[in-house]
Design a protein around this nucleic acid. Structure first.
Lengths: 156, 156
DNA sequence: ATTCTTGACTATCTTTGACTAATAGTAATT
DNA sequence: AATTACTATTAGTCAAAGATAGTCAAGAAT
């Protein structure tokens, strides 16, 4: 169900760069409880994945999902560094890398190298420590990409 | 039983590049406990044998087995994985990466990504812990370089 | 000795619904 | 006209229950 709603919203977002819904309408359309919509938004339309969400309650309330626009490669990388901050979960870190790949800032091989490095099982086992170390790693790699020549490889 | 399940999955993989199952369904189909499926996967569909496994838990969960192409550099990379072992210093780690680059197994960008990730300053500050985490990271990255996924043909 | 089978326990993701919070509309009061 | 109080209409939060898959170690089979 989550996947279906996600796909629906993404489909709309492919054509318009933002989508505005009424929570109860979408819930009815897919025959689920309204809070399911919040779940989809909280797990699939995060800032790490490049989305902003605004909403208003009460009469005429709405939920608006906006696809974040970035200027260029450098802007994207800087934005990502901010999002990473000094602590990040495995899931969010992987979302960030995936987004770089989707936007063709890194190659598939680079993305895979970075993604495996985000895996929880590689670290100390202390959640707080691990999230900090992961953020350090990811930030360093992102900053490093800022100084590199862009890829001039064939598309993959 | 293990052999039967292995044969079943391989038969499917002969026609498709990947197979996606629901663990409980297959367990029921062959009348075994669900964890048997994990055993089959862990012993028969390893990365060394050319298979990549992805999974998701919870509602709508799945296990996906993907056939991958093992690259020529496999031996070289396996040797390096052994050299890394379960603990490695920053200096030795960087040498390993440098060697990969000299041997043209990785690009310059990839090398730099890996090198920055080996830096002592990113870790916990505890030498023993750091060397272990660094080894974990480097090993995972090396293993990751051993194979290549087939081109996906999936509309999204 | 090694490989396989089993199941108890754990981890993660999704679904649901009761309760809470915010906003707009409306009617009564000043 | 402005304010207040109440009601209706949304959306948000959170925790429990449900649905999967993963791990691990003991025991069985080879």
């Amino acid at each position: 169900m989550t996947d279906i709603i996600e796909a629906y919203l993404k489909k709309v977002l492919k054509q318009k760069e933002q989508v505005e819904i009424r929570r109860s309408e979408i819930a009815e359309l897919f025959d689920c409880v309204p809070s399911q919509i919040n779940y989809v938004i909280n797990t699939r339309f995060t800032i790490q994945k490049g989305y902003l969400v605004e909403s208003k309650r009460g009469g005429g309330g709405y939920i608006r999902i906006i696809k974040v626009q970035v200027l260029d490669e450098l802007d994207m990388l800087n934005t990502m560094v901010e999002i990473v901050g000094n602590s990040i979960t495995e899931r969010d870190a992987k979302s960030v890398v995936q987004r770089l790949y989707d936007d063709k800032i890194i190659t598939k091989r680079e993305a895979k190298l970075m993604i495996v490095a985000m895996d929880k099982s590689l670290y100390t086992g202390n959640r707080v420590t691990d999230n900090r170390v992961r953020a350090n790693l990811l930030r360093s790699m992102l900053v490093n990409l800022c100084y590199e020549e862009p890829n001039k490889r064939k598309a993959d």
